[in-house]
Computed example of a mutant assay.
Amino acid sequence: MLINCVVYENGSKLADIPVAEISEYVARPGCFAWVALTDATPDELDEMREEFGLHELAVEDARHGHQRPKIEEYGQSLFAVMHLLEPDSDHPGQFNLGEVDVFVGPNYVLSVRNRSKQGFLGVRDRCEREPELLRHGAGFVLYALMDAVVDRYFPIIEALESELEDVEQQIFTQRAARESIKHLYDLKQRAVVLKHAVAPLLEAVSKLHGGRVPQICAESQDYFRDVADHLVRINGLIDGMRDTISTAMQVNLALVTIDENDVTKKLAAWASIFAISTAFVGIWGMNFEQMPELKWQYGYPAALLLIIGVCSYVYYRFRRAGWL
């Protein structure tokens, strides 16, 4: 579906135009067209390919979707893929993984957003408020779109860090081990999804500043360097979070092992106490005629007192040792 199709000249909005007139304005010096699509159909992509002269391989990637974040160069044009992560309203705590494909040429920008409810109208408004920057052309628009995508990663990682702090506090709560492990593993999965969105994009953006860069981005290198700095920061936060999650899982498992050892100690201590009483009873329960205690008037209470006394002493020693 077409969202908007706008032509700009010298950093200012010229007009909203129909798709059929795109090729006409693209051919005019000093103009560039910015078109936005969402969940584009194959027919719409084919139409855009004809209007802009897009490379067939890039169009094929956009048509199939589910691409790894990347930036590819086709002659004087670029094709960028970025992942869009949004909270899934139907499954709390999960992500909805969307994608935005951006075709950039010397005088055009085409963004195709798929499986995402968050648009980029704010990006267009921002660019139109800064005509002196918009004069840089399509390269600056690519930066603005990329910056908007990267900025959306920060609230996600902050939410993950907040969840991780809550789980870390629950780790030391009794009988919460199983739930803590499930929650930690779920956090680790979401961190991996975010990592898969950030790490490849960081590698791709590094090609847009310093050294040899595409001509389209030559005047916007400083801005792409800023995006790269944000991605480096996010990537470091993700790595730190994953390490913390792994440590928390190990601590959780260690606490489970300690609890099991405590239970084992208690069972062993009680088993020892009952073994003592069983030994005494077993000895006096033997059917021998010549047993001096059998004819003694106070034999029975004396035996009970002896058993209780020995068991109490053993219980006392286990208590001092911390087993009971």
Rank of each mutant, 00 (worst) to 15 (best):
T173C: 05
L294Y: 05
N287E: 09
N4H: 15
E47G: 07
V167H: 01
N96F: 06
H230K: 12
A62E: 01
I238E: 01
F154K: 00
F140E: 01
A275H: 05
Y315V: 03
S77W: 01
T278N: 14
S277C: 08
V193N: 05
Y8W: 04
A279K: 07
L201A: 14
S77V: 03
V281A: 11
I245N: 08
A248C: 08
K13Y: 04
R175W: 00
Y8R: 07
I157C: 04
L255I: 13
D88I: 07
Y74I: 06
D259G: 12
E50W: 00
D147S: 11
F154H: 05
V150A: 06
L187M: 10
D125E: 12
R190I: 02
A271G: 14
N287M: 01
D125K: 15
M1V: 14
N114R: 14
L142W: 02
V19A: 11
L145R: 10
G236P: 01
A20W: 00
T247A: 15
V81M: 10
E99R: 12
P301L: 13
V141G: 10
L2A: 05
S77Y: 02
R113C: 12
D101T: 09
D125P: 01
L54R: 11
E86G: 15
A40S: 10
R135T: 04
G299Q: 08
V193A: 15
L78C: 13
K182M: 12
V281I: 02
G93K: 10
H196P: 02
Q221S: 07
V26Q: 15
L306R: 06
R242P: 03
E260C: 01
S111K: 07
Q215D: 15
A268P: 05
